[in-house]
Amino acid sequence: MPMADDKSRKSLEDLDSRLRRVSDRHESRVQGNEERRIARSGVGLAFRIALDIVAGTALGVAIGYGLDYWLGTLPLFLILFLLLGFVAGFMNVYRTLTGQGYAVGYQQKEDAGDKPDDGARGPKG
């Protein structure tokens, strides 16, 4: 049946071109743009900052209290690690706001600026 064959090929070709158009549009969209928008939206950002500070502080207290409990030096390490945890929390916030995003661990700042592809890596960029 040449007619039916022709028809199905035509529809497949049509589908192919339509698929290509969709995928082109998808590729051309600036990748990660939307992710960044979500990650940076007001409430989301505020929640993240609050969470970062609380998580850091809570962990500092936990470590400090644990050390004190173990060594029997009660307020010493608790105070020390409370402060360190608080600073660590702020460090995370600083990283978030300077565009190092979710990345933890030290990164050179020039590094982030040098690599052009960094901007395309979602909230990290």
């Binding site: 998580a55 850091g56 360190l84 929390g89 460090m91």
Partner: peptide, 24 residues
Amino acid sequence: LLLVPIEVISYLSRPISLSVRLFA
């Protein structure tokens, strides 16, 4: 002496913020 503990705490706080974000 000051920065390494801060970095370690910041690394260790990852699972806390990751889990609290979803749960909260």
